[in-house]
Design a protein around this nucleic acid. Structure first.
Lengths: 228, 228
DNA sequence: TTCATACTTCGATCGTAACCGAAGCATCCC
DNA sequence: GGGATGCTTCGGTTACGATCGAAGTATGAA
């Protein structure tokens, strides 16, 4: 029975609460320093340091020195997907870190998932893109249609240049709060940065929440209507 | 930073080597007894018992009493997917339980992944189905075409009845040995059972290996040719 | 009933790893 | 240079959980 890859190492790395919290914080997509991650994990800097080196040698994180800071990121999009899918499973099994509180609503409405939009608004956006025929949903897979390509160009997104990257253009990502798919991949990322550049939305510091301005919200809801 | 689902619980469950081995064994899709799982985990029956109850209350396993036996299965296809994707990640990070040994080749060639065919043959089958136009690959998603529906019917698989199940018809599943996608979902399952009913292939006891008979292998390779 | 098998629960041991205080480097600023 | 900040390494404590022996419960067989 000693065959195949070793799941236990990765499981154990994620299995420690402090480390899990740090990883969850990094799902926000931002590179964070050791000190910030220590706070996220609820531990002292020394302890965080050893945890971080374990996560790095385990291949889940990469670090980048910048001056006297050390910035940590998830090693890979694959890691981000694993974390998100574990969140999905955990949510479906009722393993919650706390009961839904007052801070949750904003998070459920719109938040960052690695580098794209998640939560109610993320799900709505994908639904709307599919309903309008901009994106073709086949099974689990997503593809931009010709109509979608021109529609998206009109709001300032060039599909052609996105296609050239090695990263998949569209990918569906299971949303742990909505339990439905939202849009990941390079297009998901491009859309979110587009909103932020236009000033429609901005990130909250120290959190994964995404806040829409009143005008941005109006535009967003108009651009991605819900058909009833 | 106390927001969202608790990954650590699930990670910790998978993080113990004995439990990880038991879960990996269950990825074979068979229901296994506590005694068999104890052997798979390399531990005594008492220890296995406590592990199994933890896994069950954690929502990763379900058990079914049958006489004086207790049969355990993965709770869900979602759990199976998580385990497989962790295997993929572990393999890509070089976390191997042992160096490739003499027993590996059969496993790399064809093995069970929950309930469908994986390994070299699994990847080949999907490639061939896509190349022949039986399956449409859009991004990560897969869909059966009209041609595929009739082709598959001719080998004894009724897509119509599969569609009625709640489970997705096609799903791509990342193969940890080939690092490419193979076919999962109810169609993947149906194809494998079709091969076994025809006597083309059978499972090895105590292992995830799938062994093709000489005639079965001939037929399989003819049915799913590799275009060069 | 008696015995055997399959499994669980109890109790105790033991190892490992998480943790923090303190000290040690490295980098930046003045 | 001196002093601050960011992080790592060391050492020692502590706590949790994995482990197994032994005893207990349930099911089946004789």
């Amino acid at each position: 029975m000693k065959e195949g890859p070793d799941i236990a190492q990765i499981g154990a790395l994620i299995g420690d609460p402090a480390r899990a919290n740090m990883l969850a914080a990094l799902t926000g997509g931002r590179a964070l320093t050791a000190t910030e991650l220590a706070a996220a994990g609820g531990i002292t800097l020394q302890t965080a340091s050893t945890h971080l080196s374990k996560l790095e040698t385990g291949g889940l994180l990469t670090q980048r020195k910048q001056g006297r800071h050390r910035y940590f990121t998830l090693a890979d999009e694959a890691v981000a997907r694993l974390i998100e899918s574990m969140m999905g499973l955990a949510a479906s099994r009722g393993h919650l870190r706390h009961q839904p509180g007052p801070k949750d609503p904003a998070l459920r409405k719109a938040r960052i998932c690695y580098d794209h939009l998640a939560g109610d608004y993320g799900v709505r956006m994908l639904d709307s893109l599919v309903a309008s025929g901009s994106i073709d949903a086949v099974g689990d897979g997503l593809a931009v249609t010709a109509k979608g390509e021109s529609d998206l160009r009109s709001i300032g997104i060039d599909i052609g240049s996105l296609k050239s990257s090695r990263r998949p253009l569209c990918r569906s990502c299971l949303d742990w709060s909505e339990r439905r798919a939202h849009l990941a991949g390079s297009l998901g990322k491009a859309l979110l940065s587009n909103f932020m550049e236009k000033g429609w939305a901005r990130r909250m510091p120290e959190s994964r929440s995404v806040i829409f301005s009143p005008e941005g919200e109006r535009q967003f809801l108009k651009l991605f209507p819900l058909e009833t």
